[in-house]
């Protein structure tokens, strides 16, 4: 894993646990569906990512990405650099 990918992964792990109540022991491969978050959280995460990284991120894209590793790949594909 590149340093850049690692940094984005760490940022997202921190965001999910500190801000959105995901369990501390989640990993980049933990499925969003397994987190037992309420239905608005993925929308909030999409909005937060849009604000933080300056690229459009939708709820549908996050569901498709499935987990943090997928989301990092999505952000990188949109040109985001940590």
């Amino acid at each position: 894993m590149s340093t850049q990918t690692q940094t984005l992964t760490d940022q997202l792990l921190k965001m999910m646990t500190v801000q959105y109540g995901a369990p501390e022991d989640i990993t980049a491969g933990t499925s969003f569906d397994a987190l037992d978050l309420d239905s608005l959280v993925i929308v909030e995460v999409a909005v937060a990512l849009t604000g933080r990284y300056g690229v459009d991120v939708t709820e549908e894209e996050l569901h498709e990405a499935g987990d943090i590793a997928g989301t990092v790949a999505l952000l990188e594909a949109k040109g985001v650099r940590a």
Partner: peptide, 13 residues
């Protein structure tokens, strides 16, 4: 609702 939530934050922002 969910689509409106995202649009609302993005557009108001």
């Amino acid at each position: 609702g969910k689509k409106v939530f995202a649009e609302a934050v993005n557009r108001m922002g």
